[in-house]
Structure formats: C-alpha cells, structure tokens
Nucleic acid binder design. Structure first.
Lengths: 129, 129
DNA sequence: ATAATGCGTAACCGTACAGTTACGCGACTC
DNA sequence: GAGTCGCGTAACTGTACGGTTACGCATTAT
C-alpha cells in the first residue's frame, strides 16, 4: 500500500477514461506534449469540446497543463493509470485461471480417467457458488 | 491483433467500468457467482437499480447470466478486462520511464553543469514537445 | 493602441443514465 | 389454482455530460 505524495481517486480516473475521445487524447499525448489547439485540431469536434475534455483529464490528473506564451501545453501524466493497473491486478489471476481452464479441465479429466477405478465423485461442486 | 472468438468493444467495457457501483459488483462477483437478489442486497440501492447495472455489465460481457430456477445467477467474465490490460500496456513503458524521470533529469542537469563553460543555451529545448 | 491568436468559460440543447416506484411475469409452494 | 418469491422492465425524475455558439481575457503581432 505505498502512499505516493498524491493519492489519485481511481473514481475520477475511470470516469475520465470512460470517454473514447479522452482516451484518444491520451493516446495522442503519448507522442508528446501539445498545446490545446493542436489537440483540438486532431479531432472532429469543436475546440471548446476538447477544452472540456481536457478539464476532466486535468481533474483526474491524467494530464498536466502549463502555459507557454499564449499556448497551454498539455502533457501526459500516466501516474493515475497505475491505479487502474493495480485494480486490474485483482482480476489478472482470474483470467489466467480462465486461460488454463480448458487445459486444466482436460488434464483433470485425464487424471480422473487414470485413477477412475473405484472413486465415487462426491457430487460435482456445482459451479463456483 | 489476436482475434478471439468474440471481439469485445473496449468502448462498452470502459463505459461499464466507469461506475463505482458496477466495479463493486464485479469485485463482489470475484468471490463467486451470485443471484441478482443477493447482489442487490449488498448495496444500499434498490434492486431495480442493480438490475440495470447488471444489464450494462451484461452488454459489456463483463458478466454472464443464467437461470437457476427462479433465480438469475450472475457470473464474472474477466475476458473483456484483458482488452483494458492491453490498452494499458501502451502506457506501461511510459510510467516506467517516469519512474526514472527525476533521476534522469538530475543526471542531465549534472552533465550540463559539467560541460557548461562556454556553451550558450540556444533557447532551452522548450519542453518535450 | 489595435488587431489577431489561443484558450477557457458561460449559456444552452439533447441524450444518457442512476435512482425510484409501480407493475408484470415466470417459477416454486401449499 | 392461489399466493408468494425473484427479478426484469416501464415510466418518470434529477443530474451529469458531450456538443455547439457566443463571449471574454490574456498574449503576441503590426
């Protein structure tokens, strides 16, 4: 449970990531920082629309903004994505399990087949509930 | 670009994950499949509200539903989370980079300081743009 | 000083959606 | 068959938000 200087609300993060345009902005920003205008230029929506998206991304700390003359340059901040990664972590074993489920199943069947001489199956654990 | 039998729209997935209640439902379902009623019982909102959340999760293929008598049992399907994991992958190197950014920066400054005898700074490389 | 640029914000739509209550329907119980 | 349980859905409300246009405010250019 390492506590970095700032604790990012994964709530805001997920919320910010929910919009495809915002994810695209992040993808764009991976190539390098850009002023708001150029970001807006990359999308088929109006500049104010992007401005609002950027505000949301700012609130989620997914981007950082600093002025440069009359430009506002936006920079990616991948830090909060770490929280998403951690959250995902709880499910990773889970889908690895599923990855091997067929294999495991087959092996289990195989093992059963081998040792299946006089052992009565107790009841088949009826799902995972 | 592996194409599994089903292609999950990461759009629907992110959308589904955007709500805290829905993420909580998934977290709950990690412990095992449950009928809708029990899921609803675990939250301070009405049963129909949960029912709608479950519908969204179903659409995103994050849960699977099957009837069992007069119950509808919901089961976690972690598959679509893989897509999220892949998406995140593009940022993983990035935040590893940032881990070392301070170190790198300090080292760079140090190097500059050493060689900085008669070199006029052209204009300060102006961010990372 | 004046004009033009770059951006954010306000004001205003339309739509999505979280939540509620009322209702309906299939599935077990007696 | 009548009652009840489990659960989805319809109908409705409040709110968030994506998009637009109009506007305002700095900063640079003339």
């Amino acid at each position: 449970m390492r506590n970095r200087s700032v604790t990012y609300s994964s709530e805001a993060t997920f919320q910010a990531l929910a919009d495809p345009t915002r994810r695209a902005v992040l993808d764009l920003l991976r190539r390098g920082s850009q002023p708001a205008g150029e970001i807006a230029g990359a999308f088929p929506v109006s500049r104010p629309a992007i401005s609002k998206h950027l505000r949301l991304l700012r609130r989620a700390h997914l981007v950082r903004e600093h002025r440069e003359g009359r430009n506002r340059v936006y920079q990616l901040n991948p830090e909060p994505l770490r929280a998403v990664d951690s959250w995902l972590d709880q499910y990773r074993n889970f889908w690895k399990m599923n990855l091997n489920s067929l294999k495991t199943f087959v092996e289990a069947e195989h093992a059963k087949e081998i040792s299946q001489h006089h052992i009565a199956k107790p009841k088949t654990s009826k799902g995972d509930h």
